[in-house]
């Protein structure tokens, strides 16, 4: 594995290796000294062209716990706002000796471009590109589900809400399929992407029909900032038909868990009582996120790079 660009690139073995590695690394968070010397002397650049708090600090915490040097680069207030291209930014980072670039970009495919150009020699990790993919989120979701539900083969995962704008939904659908889970996407027809028939999932417009057989329900944020048209009549109607409230939650099987990639719109796609209930693993997802990202960085950077073995 040289880069992590898409959940689709991961074989079942790759995914299981990442999850198992993360499980060992999760123990580090419980120690008095939360630090490993493994990536000492490696430089990781967080290249964020789009606002993000949790993903960036999660990657930053992961890199620092492995003793890597972290450079944070956000497009706001940088040379990008003066019109610098992705290529020139990448060349600059290469000149500074970045061993890995964690990139978030508003354009789908930007990480792919970066990885397959000759602009940078480092490993590229996709931390969310446009409405395309967010593979580390899918990995941490799978990790959380696995730790709560056991092996994911045959488990029913229901992903609800704004699938159209969601890179989380796409990455999850691909990864969960690789791991053998059955995925159902529930959304109003306007919020399902064109071509969803080719995804390895079932789709439904009716949340009530799906809750009773779900082992895990993942609520997606309604991404108002990406919505430039009316996708549903009103927030209230959306919330009534596709929001997770207590009544719906109580119809879930006893072992089922409620997930949300954050940030939440409380009262919109998820009710506050549900978000704070025992079934909600939303805070756990954040903790697991650091361990999963440590695993990804370790597996990409921990060993010999191609130049060093050559």
């Amino acid at each position: 594995m040289k880069h992590l660009l898409s959940a689709a690139d991961l074989t079942r073995e790759d995914a299981i290796t990442i999850l198992d590695t993360a499980e060992e690394l999760l123990g580090v968070a419980k120690r008095p000294i939360k630090k490993l010397p493994t990536l000492r002397g490696r430089t990781i650049v967080n290249l964020f062209f789009e606002d993000s708090t949790r993903t960036r600090i999660s990657f930053e915490a992961a890199a620092k716990r492995l003793s890597a040097d972290v450079i944070n680069f956000s497009a706001k207030g940088s040379s990008v706002s003066k019109g610098e291209s992705l290529k020139d930014t990448a060349l600059t980072l290469q000149a500074m000796g970045a061993d890995a670039v964690v990139i978030r970009h508003h354009a789908s495919g930007a990480p792919h471009r970066l990885a397959h150009s000759r602009w940078t020699r480092g490993a590229v990790v996709n931390a969310g590109d446009g409405t395309h993919e967010h593979p580390t989120q899918a990995l941490l979701d799978a990790f959380t589900m696995r730790s709560r539900l056991g092996d994911l083969a045959g488990k029913n995962v229901t992903i609800v809400g704004d699938v159209l704008h969601s890179r989380v939904a796409r990455s999850n659908a691909l990864l969960l399929d690789t791991l053998g889970a059955e995925v159902t996407l529930v959304a109003p027809p306007t919020l399902l992407p064109v071509g969803v028939e080719s995804w390895p999932v079932r789709t439904s417009y009716d949340l009530d029909a799906e809750v009773e057989k779900s082992d895990a329900v993942m609520m997606l944020r309604v991404q108002r900032e990406r919505m430039n048209a009316s996708f549903f009549p009103s927030a209230r109607e959306y919330s009534r038909r596709y929001g997770l409230d207590l009544a719906r939650m109580n119809r879930l099987p006893d072992h089922a868990i409620v997930m949300h990639p954050g940030p939440m719109n409380r009262g919109m796609e998820i009710n506050a009582d549900v978000a704070d209930s025992d079934r909600s693993v939303i805070v756990e997802q954040v903790t697991n996120g650091v361990a999963v990202r440590m695993a990804v960085l370790y597996l990409l950077l921990g060993g010999a790079t191609e130049e060093e073995t050559a």
């Binding site: 198992d20 060992e24 690394l25 597996l299 990409l300 921990g302 060993g303 010999a304 060093e308």
Partner: peptide, 10 residues
């Protein structure tokens, strides 16, 4: 570590 491919953790 840097002399070999990344190893799985035990």
């Amino acid at each position: 570590l840097r002399l070999k491919a990344p190893r799985a953790l035990l």
